[in-house]
């Protein structure tokens, strides 16, 4: 007799590993014309297929770039390493970037961890609410902007990359990739954000990313610009982006 705890632990382990114990096999009756091991494999196979399919949805860019065969092989390795622990499938695969960093594929293609992180950030932003941006009048009439603290939306992801990470991610939307002239070693600096109109991306300079990161952390404009080598035009560009993109929620 396995009891409730025993049956659940053994069945769970059988599904997670694909290796049922003798104890479990001795205590079940298979359905259909299946033998015991095949009946248990129905659950194991379903688990692998379900979570792989979830990962394909959560990592559209990575999946698209790698193709089914390589991507699903990675999924199988990943899910043995990181079984799902939450009811929330939208979050499954959150360690894929870390996993890929130590994977031979990630070593061979060093942009892969960053690409999978970008996928996950898209998912994070997708599940955040759309937030109303600041009333432009409040911004116009503020008396001391340089000392002001800017409250930004939660849905911001800033990334300075050695690779054209967003352009690689965006390949998923392009049917004929052979026509795409992509310099795989072109550095890219982005702000991925969710404003009132949905998820968008803004290309920035590395200095603009640094300053925006400081503003995001709560520094006022003067503090954020301290030691920055940005010229006036770049500062104006960044300020224009902050004030018109919808990422600015409040100012105080």
């Amino acid at each position: 007799m396995l009891g409730i705890k025993g049956s659940q632990e053994l069945l769970g382990k059988s599904i997670l590993t694909g290796n049922p114990s003798e104890d479990l096999l001795n205590n079940i009756i298979p359905g259909g014309k299946l033998d015991k091991k095949k009946a248990l494999m129905v659950y194991r196979d379903d688990y692998v297929a379900r979570l792989s399919s979830v990962m394909a949805e959560n990592f559209e860019g990575t999946h698209s770039l790698l193709g089914d065969e390589i991507f699903f092989a990675i999924c199988r390795e990943y899910l043995d390493y990181y079984p799902s622990t939450s009811f929330d499938l939208g979050n499954y695969g959150k360690y894929l970037d870390k996993f890929l960093k130590n994977h031979s594929l990630g070593v061979e293609y060093p942009f892969l961890p960053e690409l999978s992180r970008l996928d996950m950030e898209f998912m994070r932003l997708f599940h955040l609410p759309r937030v109303k941006s600041i009333d432009p009048e409040k911004l116009k009439t503020h008396e001391n902007l340089s000392q002001a603290k800017f409250k930004l939306v939660e849905g911001i992801y800033l990334k300075k990359s050695k690779f054209p990470i967003y352009k690689i991610w965006d390949l998923k939307n392009i049917e004929d990739r052979e026509d795409v002239d992509l310099d795989w070693n072109e550095a890219e600096n982005i702000c991925l954000y969710k404003g009132e109109d949905g998820i968008k991306v803004q290309f920035l300079t590395p200095e603009q990313v640094d300053v925006l990161e400081k503003i995001k952390q709560g520094l006022n404009l003067d503090q954020a610009l301290e030691n920055s080598e940005m010229d006036v035009i770049r500062v104006q560009e960044l300020f224009s982006f902050i004030s018109t993109s919808g990422i600015l929620v409040d100012i105080c």
Partner: peptide, 11 residues
Amino acid sequence: GPPGANIHNLL
């Protein structure tokens, strides 16, 4: 699923 895992199946 057993504690610490969600198998996303109805067992």
